[in-house]
């Protein structure tokens, strides 16, 4: 059994959060630069230029990329041959999250659902983190992190279709969700689509799809083709950067597909804004 110190996890998570707050990942930066080249609307082109300038300023001066520094979302794969020495893994991730958000002057955006009271003084600074655990073989812990903003989360949707809806139904649904969203989720967006599984499996898959590097291809050729088709359809909508009209509404569509019940075809569309702050570390 391999042992990893509680404090090692805390420090790793803290560093991931601080880095993600100010440094746009290279895949997102490159995708925005390509979108600026391709964009036909001068207004949207200028918006994307501002986004790249913003990323440069944030990185150089260590200022948060966006005032919405998100809820902290993690996908953690824990090897069955590893244990945490000195505490619980969930507590270590939460502690690292709190320290990262506080030390880097990131905004605490977590609140109670009805009173809307900010939980920073009661539960902890931007706590609790949203953590999805999975158990895997081996003696490592694999941590994927993304800061998830509210504007793009607010337009996300899920639906369980009858199997007859098929691929055409999914294309139509994705187009409908993005069309209704317009400029609200801060385009150019990344679109995560979870297909199959049960209702909640589709939703979690759509979230995880957003953690994939923009520009990477789906290993499944059928899903790769579907991703390209949906991307093309979304970019025909004309929404453009920040909804001001244009050709580059989405940077990428990412699909995660699962086996599902013979009676159903669950589909979830989760949207990420242009500031796709995600990072990945294996301890």
């Amino acid at each position: 059994m391999r042992e990893i110190a509680f404090d090692t996890v805390v420090k790793t998570v803290r560093d991931m959060i601080i880095y993600s707050g100010t440094d746009l990942p290279q895949d997102t930066y490159d995708a925005l630069a390509q979108a600026m080249e391709k964009e036909k609307s001068p207004v949207s082109k200028e918006v994307i230029r501002q986004l790249l300038e913003n990323a440069d300023i944030a990185k150089d001066e260590k200022r948060p990329l966006c005032q919405d520094t998100g809820l902290a979302v993690f996908f953690v794969r824990v090897g069955e041959e590893v244990r945490i020495d000195g505490g619980l893994l969930r507590d270590a991730i939460n502690k690292g999250t709190e320290e990262g958000y506080q030390d880097a002057y990131l905004r605490a955006s977590t609140c109670e659902p009805f009173s809307r009271a900010n939980l920073k003084d009661t539960v902890g600074y931007n706590l609790p983190a949203i953590i999805h655990f999975d158990l895997v073989a081996g003696d490592k812990i694999d941590i994927e992190y993304a800061a998830k903003g509210g504007g793009s989360e607010n337009v996300s949707r899920a639906k369980v279709f009858p199997p007859a809806a098929g691929k055409a139904g999914i294309v139509q649904y994705a187009k409908e969700v993005i069309s209704d969203a317009g400029g609200n989720p801060c385009p150019p967006i990344t679109v995560g689509i979870g297909i199959g599984g049960t209702f909640e499996k589709a939703v979690i898959s759509s979230k995880h799809a957003l953690f994939r590097d923009i520009g990477s291809r789906n290993a499944d050729p059928e899903m790769d083709e579907l991703e390209q088709e949906i991307l093309l359809e979304i970019n025909k909508l004309g929404i453009g950067a920040m909804g001001m009209g244009g050709t580059e509404t989405a940077l990428a569509v990412h699909i995660e597909s699962n086996p599902c019940h013979i009676a159903s075809l669950p589909v979830s569309v989760n949207v990420q804004c242009h500031s796709s702050r995600h990072t990945h570390i294996t301890i």
Binding site: N54, C66, Q67, D68, H274
Partner: peptide, 13 residues
């Protein structure tokens, strides 16, 4: 007016 969403570092300056 619309300002560029997500350009928080640039606008904050």
């Amino acid at each position: 007016f619309g300002a560029t969403g997500g350009a928080g570092a640039l606008l904050g300056k």
